Structures are given as structure tokens and as C-alpha cells.
Simulated scan of single mutants.
Amino acid sequence: MTALTLLAGWLPAPAAAQSSPAEVTQMKLERSGDGVYLTAAVQFELPTLVEEVLDKGIAVYFVAEAELYRERWYWTDARVAQVARHMRLAYQPLTRRWRLNVSPVPITNAGFGATLNQNFDTLSDALEAVKRVGRLRMGDLSDISEDAIHPVQFRFRLDTSQLPRPFQIGMAGQADWNIVAERTAKLPVGKSP
């Protein structure tokens, strides 16, 4: 028993995760014009390791995904809509500004395609924009019943599959790269102000 205790003392202690878990703090469905939109807010702290990677000019990718269902009493709920928003956050060393690219499709190195680009002076300002997922179009009013309450599943995550290959190999078992938030709620379709 003492040999086992001695061996356990030699093994390195597991590193405590520096980041608090991510959570979805707000979700609501709104009707605007002829469409239904989802607005969500996510709260998380960026781990030091991820911040260091960003400071070196390496882009980090986030994905927000949502699914809207119609309840059925006779079978499982029917998925009415499924959408995603892809975000690329990168530091621009020449201008000393942060750039956020937002697209409905994955952003690849082959080109950004049709993206919304925003520039920020500080990392905290850029992260606030990442944490607010506003007006995610779920579908047309004709497809989504206004008077019903709809189950909505929302997921937000750090997409490590788009990082450069050396980072993907080195991140195995590191909790700093695990930023994930998920929430399921039954939401009514409200009117936008």
C-alpha cells in the first residue's frame, strides 16, 4: 500500500481547468417580417491557452447551431429547421485589431466566401460579439406555427477541427480547448419590437 502511495506522489497531478464551463444564458424566438429568428447569449471565459494562440495570430473558430422542432403527440417531434453560424476570430498584427468573420457555412482556407466581417480594438469586444448570437434565421412564418410553443435545441462550441494540424494533435486531453454550451427549451414565437 505504501509503494502505491509513493508511486501516486510521483505522478503529476491533473491540471485543473482554468476556464469555467460555458452556458447558454438567454434564448428567445422572434417573429420579424416573414421569418422566425432565434437570439441567444452564451457566457464563457476564454482559457489562457486559447488566448495565447490567438495572440500569435492563429485563428480560432466557433460554431453556433440550432434546431427547431414541431411537437407531435403520435410520434417523435418533427424537425422544422436546422441552421448554423460559423465564426472565425483572428488577431491582425499589422493593424493590431481583432477581426471576426461570420458565415452560415464553414469558413475554410480556400476563401471566406460570403461573410460578414467586423473589426474590434480589443479581444474583449470581439468576444462579446462572439457570445451574442443574434437573429439566427430559423425559417419562414409559413413553415413555423406562430401560436405554438416549439422545442429548440441550441449548441455553441469551439470548433477545434479547423485549427492547424499541430494544434489538433497536441490538444488531446487538454480541457482548455473544450468550450461547449448546450440548451434545450420550449419557446413561444414572440413579436419583435
Rank of each mutant, 00 (worst) to 15 (best):
V53P: 00
N117W: 04
V60W: 02
I144Q: 06
L38Q: 02
G134L: 14
P106S: 15
L94D: 00
S161W: 10
S103D: 00
G57K: 00
L4T: 01
T108A: 01
A17D: 11
P151G: 14
Y74D: 08
D77L: 06
T5D: 14
A3P: 08
Q18K: 09
A78N: 09
Y91A: 01
R97M: 10
Y69R: 13
G139S: 08
A78W: 12
T122I: 13
L187W: 06
K56D: 05
L141N: 15
K131T: 14
E146R: 09
S124D: 10
P104Q: 02
R99N: 04
G57T: 11
I107H: 09
I144K: 11
I58A: 00
S192A: 05
L6I: 15
H150K: 06
L94H: 00
H150V: 07
Q162N: 00
Q82V: 15
P164D: 07
G111I: 07
A114C: 09
L116H: 10
P14F: 09
T184P: 11
F44H: 13
A22T: 07
R183S: 12
R31M: 09
R70C: 07
R97F: 04
L187T: 06
A81Q: 02
F154W: 10
A64W: 01
E65K: 04
I149L: 09
S103P: 00
R70D: 14
L94V: 00
R183H: 15
A64P: 06
H86D: 01
R72N: 02
T95H: 04
P93T: 00
T122H: 11
D34C: 12
K191H: 05
L187M: 10
A90V: 14
P193R: 05
P104E: 02
L49T: 07
W73D: 12
R88D: 04
E146P: 09
T108H: 07
P106D: 00
R99K: 09
V60I: 07
E146N: 02
T115F: 12
P12S: 08
D159N: 06
A81W: 14
E146K: 13
M1K: 12
L46K: 15
L11P: 10
L136E: 11
L7K: 05
Q82C: 13
T115N: 11
T48E: 13
Y91P: 04
R157D: 06
I107C: 07
A16H: 15
K28Q: 05
Q162R: 04
T95Y: 08
S32V: 14
Y91K: 08
K131A: 05
R72E: 15
D140I: 05
V102N: 03
I169K: 09
G111D: 06
I149F: 03
L4H: 05
I144S: 12
A59I: 00
A172G: 13
L38V: 10
N101Y: 10
A90N: 01
A22H: 05
V189Y: 03
S124Y: 11
